[in-house]
Design a protein around this nucleic acid. Structure first.
Length: 445
RNA sequence: CGGGCUAUAGCGCAGUUUGGUAGCGCGUUCGUCUGGGGGACGAGAGGUCGCAGGUUCGAAUCCUGCUAGCCCGACCA
């Protein structure tokens, strides 16, 4: 993309309403604009990041054998009356009437709808296990939305639901989800720690939250620092292998890691003192096993091998995709702006032309730009007639992981400069070598 | 929902106390000079002062009502 044709309304000054760093940077970098309290438009740069995250979530869910689908944002109140949650959910649920006076709601989650789909179409144990998920906009009418996309009213979320014939296989689904989530966050360049959680309004006993450590996090967290060293890396996971999933879950849930809701100081003190850490965390996902809560209420039953009709065991699992955009920025930025992990960067490389209008510089940049596109490097070429300082400041603000700087001084010697946003380190290379280097970096991502 | 606060040009703000017809910085447009970390000079454009009503010769300024947004708390992925 050429910046001269890109819609990138960056702000030099910080808008008054933004309090935390991710909100400030998302506004300044032209990623979002507020439409109403807690409701945002995603401008091209923000939308690109959102899509990158969505893609990663889909890939990892499909890899785990889960079925992508799409449910509507608006739901009929009737199903929620059936589960009893129409009254339980309270003011957070946005209630709407259609022209016929029928009660609708903007879905804050989808247990009822998915259970309805399930009970109408699945009747036998032979169709299990089954996990359905979608990535869709949700709405919770928070009393006080704040912190930009971190706590908006409208948010983009992956929510998935597993259906199993009994508890052991539902626990395998739980484990499978934990592993797939660990992979998902790791691919995004994030350290998200599974922590034992309280179950909240969805219900159930078996639940973990995934938290990204950041000073601005909403939860206080207590953990054994040994958990930070755990990595899936390039381990291959067979999601049908119950033993393997269980051992990975055991590995990740053995070190102490809890939020303030479930924290137990006595247990925590068994952790060696030097590894005992307290911090704040942003919740970016949660998994639940809640048994037959909804299948009982909504009569979702399957026939077992023995011919019995039993309520199906369920769990639900969520990843806050739009919130992750903010969480990643909270965890990865400096005074100059955002620092995107390579896997989620909106563009993989920025090309800065230091002397727009100079025949040699323009020519070199055009060549680099086309070659980078051909290599799939998705470059953003700053071809504006701005001065060097303004172009650098823009690139730093929007946080592309790599920058190629092209100017007359280097071109005299046949080189351009490749700079890493994160470390600030630069290297002079021929344009060909710079592209080759980037291809290698991105080959594994 | 309780407490506090704000609303003036695209953004950040001053002006409101003491009423006299709106200003600064950034951005933006045009021109010239520039050209490796938000450059300089010159000339422009841009505002029903959140909305409605009232007081007054006259309201951004005073009064009443409303709306929207922000912060703290409770709540929350």
């Amino acid at each position: 993309m050429r910046m001269s044709r890109y819609f990138l309304p960056i702000l030099k000054e910080t808008p008054a309403e933004a309090q935390i760093v991710s909100h400030r940077l998302m506004l300044r970098a032209g990623m979002i604009r507020q439409a109403a309290a807690g409701i945002y438009s995603w401008l091209p740069l923000g939308f690109k990041v959102l899509r990158r995250l969505e893609d990663i979530v889909h890939q990892e869910q499909i890899r785990a054998g889960h079925n992508p689908m799409l449910m509507p944002t608006l739901q009929s109140a009737d199903l929620w009356r059936e589960s009893g949650r129409y009254d339980d959910y309270g003011e957070e649920m946005l209630r709407i009437k259609d022209r016929h006076g029928r009660d609708l709601l903007y879905g804050p989650t989808n247990e009822e709808l998915i259970t309805d789909i399930f009970r109408n179409n699945v009747h036998s144990y032979k169709d299990l296990p089954l996990t359905l998920y979608h990535i869709q906009w949700k709405f919770r009418d928070e009393i006080r939305p704040r912190f930009g996309v971190m706590r908006g009213r409208e948010f983009f979320m992956k929510d998935g639901y597993n259906f199993d014939v009994d508890k052991p296989s539902a626990i395998q689904a739980y484990n499978r989800h934990m592993v797939s989530y660990l992979r998902t966050y790791e691919r995004m360049g994030l350290k998200a720690i599974p922590m034992r959680a309280a179950s909240g309004p969805i219900g159930g006993d078996n639940t973990h939250e995934f938290l990204v450590l950041a000073d601005t996090g909403e939860s206080e967290v207590f953990y054994d620092s040994a958990i930070l060293d755990l990595k899936l890396g390039d381990r291959t996971v067979d999601y049908d292998d119950w033993g393997q999933c269980e051992s990975i879950v055991t590995e990740w849930t053995t070190p102490y890691a809890r939020t303030d809701e479930t924290h137990d100081q006595a247990v925590f003190e068994n952790v060696p003192e030097e590894r005992r850490k307290t911090s704040r965390g942003i919740e970016v996902g949660q998994i639940f096993y809640f048994g037959t809560k909804y299948s009982d209420a909504m009569n979702a039953k399957v026939v077992t091998q023995d011919g019995d009709r039993v309520p199906v065991h369920m769990g639900s699992h969520g990843i806050g995709v739009s919130r992750l955009v903010g969480a990643i920025i909270e965890a990865s930025h400096d005074d100059n702006g955002i620092i995107w992990p390579e896997a989620v960067a909106p563009f993989r490389v920025g090309i800065v032309n230091l002397k727009q209008g100079d025949e040699e510089a323009d020519g070199a940049c055009d060549g680099l730009y086309k070659a980078a596109m051909a290599l799939g490097l998705d470059p953003l070429y700053d071809d504006r007639s701005e001065r060097a300082g303004a172009k650098f400041a823009t690139m730093d603000l929007i946080g592309l992981p790599w920058r190629i700087t092209v100017g007359p001084r280097g071109l005299k010697n046949g080189v351009v400069e490749l700079t890493c946003r994160k470390t600030g380190e630069s290297e002079e290379l021929t344009p060909e070598l710079a592209l080759q280097r980037l291809s290698e970096i991105y080959a594994g991502i």
